[in-house]
Amino acid sequence: MAAVDVNERLRTAMGLVLLACAPGLLALLWLHGWGMLLNLLLTSVGALATEAALLMLMRRPVRAALSDGSALVTATLLAIALPAYAPGWLPLIAASCAVAIGKHAYGGVGKNPFNPAMLGYAVVLLSFPVAMTQWPAPQPLDLGTSLHLVFGITSSTQPDAWVQATVLDGLRNNRSLTIDELFAQHPGFGFFGGKGTEWASLGFLLGGLFLLQRKVFSWHAPAGLLGSLFIISVFCWNGSGSDSHGSPLLHLLSGSTLFAAFFIVTEPVSGPRSPMARLMFGVGVGTLIYLIRTWGSYPDGTAFAVLLMNLAVPALERWAARREREAT
């Protein structure tokens, strides 16, 4: 009976997470059209097929495990994180690695020390860096072009008709323009952050607040990430000059910030259990995101920030337990 209750709670939580992804996903569908749908289809196929194959090899029940929704949530988070119109093999590899290495290599649901979606993302980012830099402009392509880009033969020297540097790329590689000039001239800049992706970020904020209201997770990790990123960007912000690292609002509404705050750092298994440790986990992720964006080798760095803080979870738990003992 206890196992049935645990499985039912897991299915309910995964269903709520998928529902909460809907506003952000709809915004991305509006921006990228078929590319986003194809991403979601391919990551879902890769995650579910890998999960089923591994369960059969281990002679464990397939239907019950697939119905818990965890593989589908991992696939959805990966589809959101990966570039739309990526070559078809890339979402399949990312999803397969997320499930096989990030989840089942450690024993399955409830035992993974690393966030599976971020591990799958990091694998393809390190293995196929060129494909992972082809971010599309905020405009949907027709179905024929989409199918050609995803399933056809494409090359890294393809014309830039549909590829555009992201806001964080533009900010990182800027050498002469002020921030105001970047917003006026760079096609990727919108009102406060990335053009169009601002709405996706607000969609994920809306979904995250829904999950908070349903008590799927606590406020500690999201508050830690957003608070630390805001504070460090305030202290490091030097106005709108050409050497500026960007305003706090730009950092909050660009890249994967709000998506990560409510759908990545809140992953319950690879994150800490105690509230204080969760808060510090979010603080660490937010700080690392800013450091990687500003001085590291990657424009965003969310996946590496999360995976590095996953390594620190045992130390954070011990620190929080010691603080609780001292308080009593």
Rank of each mutant, 00 (worst) to 15 (best):
L205Y: 01
F151K: 10
E267T: 04
Y290E: 05
I153P: 12
H251T: 08
V6T: 11
A22R: 03
G69V: 07
L28H: 06
W162C: 09
G286Y: 04
T145G: 09
G246D: 02
V45D: 04
G46A: 00
M36R: 11
M280E: 09
L78C: 03
R323H: 14
M14C: 07
P299F: 02
L119R: 00
D5K: 14
V17T: 11
F189Y: 15
A22W: 08
Q139T: 13
W219V: 14
K103G: 02
G208F: 02
L147T: 12
G227V: 08
V109L: 15
L252N: 03
S70V: 04
L149S: 03
S146N: 11
F191S: 12
P222K: 00
L288C: 04
A161R: 15
M280P: 08
E267I: 05
F189G: 04
P187T: 07
V306K: 00
L168S: 01
D142T: 15
F263H: 03
Y85L: 14
L182D: 01
L18H: 09
S228I: 05
P116L: 08
L72G: 02
V163Q: 15
F217W: 10
I80T: 05
M58L: 14
A94I: 00
L211Y: 05
L78D: 00
T76G: 11
P275I: 10
L25G: 10
S297R: 12
Q134C: 13
A221P: 05
G102E: 02
P116I: 07
T43M: 01
L72N: 00
F192G: 09
M58C: 13
L143M: 13
I232L: 12
T50I: 07
S70N: 01
G196W: 05
A321M: 11
V216H: 06
S156Q: 14
A95S: 08
L212E: 08
P248G: 04
S127M: 09
D300T: 03
W319R: 13
A200L: 03
A221H: 02
F192D: 08
G208Y: 01
L149G: 00
A86T: 04
Y85D: 09
A49I: 02
S254V: 06
A52V: 04
P314G: 07
S244F: 07
P159H: 10
A223H: 07
L171M: 13
V109W: 11
G108D: 01
S127C: 13
E8F: 11
L249Y: 05
G241A: 09
S156E: 13
E324I: 09
C236P: 06
E326I: 11
L37Y: 10
